[in-house]
Amino acid sequence: MTMTMAHLTLAFGLLGNIVSFMVFLAPIPTFYKVYKKKSTEGFQSAPYVVGLFSAMLWIYYALLKSNVLLLITINTFGCVIETVYIVFFLFYAPKKARMESLKLIILLIFVGFGLIVLLTQFLASGVTRGVIVGWICLVFSLCVFVAPLGVLRQVIRTKSVEYMPILLSVALTLSAVMWFFYGLLLNDFNIAIPNVLGFIFGIIQMILYVAYKNNKPSNEKIVINISEIEEQKIPKHKDQKAIHVVKLNAEILPVATKNALEKRPNDHTINVGA
């Protein structure tokens, strides 16, 4: 029985690594576009900085444990790939966006993570330290999984899934399932609990995709053609000539679509990696 549980834990951990690996690579097409255009355009660095912070936090937690090696492997890769994304972003970002990114990096990575490590090292010890860091990981992961609510709200408002890639949603859902069972089999609820929320949001995203996938893109122009009006006569008064109304063509972009485009989200969805 013990061997079976160990094999299942290893299987879910490996599957979690594989799926999370693909999720970490998901932004590559986005950065290829950035490279081609030599500009970050409207993209933001926040998801990648948060992703790096999350990976570092889970590595620190895993180092305080004794049986979560697979948590270390995937988040080590996460640290590397998120760092590459951030460096790439900083290279092509305009000055204002670059400065904002650097401020976020200093605040979250150096100050935030640094304080967590220092305080837990000096103010806690042994099992207590692991419990504290585990709770920090749990709360932070829950906050990260709540982040896609903005995208879901936009999908419902615009009735369009053009900015919600279904393959990424499926991958994130599968990742949540794998890491949930990995944490459950290890009796580590700091790993398991956040992924329940990740699974729920993943299912909601897929339901919305099925509901709205056949809708036309919200940024489609509505063209109004008033043709075949060559001449409309208004009753003549003294010395009044006939008024000719020529063909009218108008292209109207709905206000709702304009707002949706202005608030276009990043292509990247944060992966907690656990």
Rank of each mutant, 00 (worst) to 15 (best):
W58I: 02
I229Y: 13
S101E: 05
I193A: 06
T83W: 04
L168Q: 11
A242Q: 10
I222E: 10
L90D: 11
S160H: 04
F110T: 06
N219C: 03
I203Q: 02
L63V: 07
P265F: 01
T83F: 08
K103N: 14
S45G: 07
M22E: 00
F24H: 06
V117N: 05
E262P: 02
L142T: 04
K33D: 15
F77K: 02
L208V: 12
Y92C: 07
G150E: 08
S175P: 02
K95S: 15
H268S: 12
I226M: 09
S175G: 11
K213C: 09
G114N: 05
E251F: 00
E220M: 07
E82I: 02
L149Q: 11
N266G: 15
F31R: 12
L184Q: 13
T128K: 12
G183Y: 04
G183K: 04
K33S: 14
L15C: 15
F21Q: 10
D267E: 11
G112C: 10
C79R: 00
Q121D: 13
K241Y: 07
K65C: 14
G42E: 07
A97L: 12
E230G: 15
K247I: 01
G51I: 04
V127T: 13
S101D: 02
I72W: 01
F113N: 12
A256Q: 11
V131N: 10
I116R: 08
K263F: 01
M99F: 14
K258T: 10
I243D: 14
L104G: 14
V223G: 00
P235G: 08
G183Q: 10
V131E: 13
T4Q: 11
L71C: 12
T158M: 09
F89D: 06
H237Y: 02
F43P: 02
L208Q: 05
C137L: 08
Y60W: 15
G78Y: 06
H237A: 04
L118W: 15
